[in-house]
Computed example of a mutant assay.
Amino acid sequence: MPMLPEDKLSILYVDDEEQNLVSFRAAFRRHYSIFTATSGKDGLDILQNEKINLVITDQRMPEMTGVQFLEKVIPAYPDTIRMILTGFSDIEVIIEAINTGRVFRYITKPWDTHELKMTIDNACQLYRLQRNNKQLLEELQLKVTEQEKTLRLFQKYVPEEVVRKALDSAEESIFEGELRHVVVLFCDIRGFTTFSEQISPKEVVAFLNCYYTLMTESIKEHNGTVNQFVGDEIFACFGAPISYADNEQNAVFCAMEMIKRVEKLNEQYMPQFGQKIKIGIGIHAGEVIAGNTGSEDHIGYSITGDTVNTGKRIETLTKDHENTILISEAVCSKVNHLLHLNPWEPVTLKGKKDKYQVYEIVGRR
Rank of each mutant, 00 (worst) to 15 (best):
I84T: 11
K156T: 15
D15C: 05
E197R: 12
H222C: 12
S173T: 14
I84G: 01
Q228D: 12
T348G: 04
I98K: 05
Y356T: 10
Y359S: 00
V358W: 01
I277T: 03
T86G: 10
T348P: 03
G274Y: 00
L142I: 02
H321E: 12
H298R: 15
I189F: 04
I189K: 01
W344T: 02
Q48L: 13
F207C: 01
P346V: 06
N53P: 09
V308W: 04
R30C: 07
T150A: 11
E17K: 13
L129G: 08
G101K: 06
A37C: 09
H284P: 11
N53A: 04
T65L: 05
I52R: 05
K278N: 07
I189R: 01
N250D: 06
R30M: 07
T194K: 10
A290N: 09
S33G: 13
V204R: 00
N250C: 07
T113L: 08
S33N: 14
I74P: 02
E161D: 13
D79C: 09
W344S: 08
D306Y: 12
I11F: 08
G66E: 06
A240M: 03
T119F: 09
I277L: 06
L9D: 02
T108M: 14
V144N: 02
Q48V: 12
I234W: 02
E315V: 12
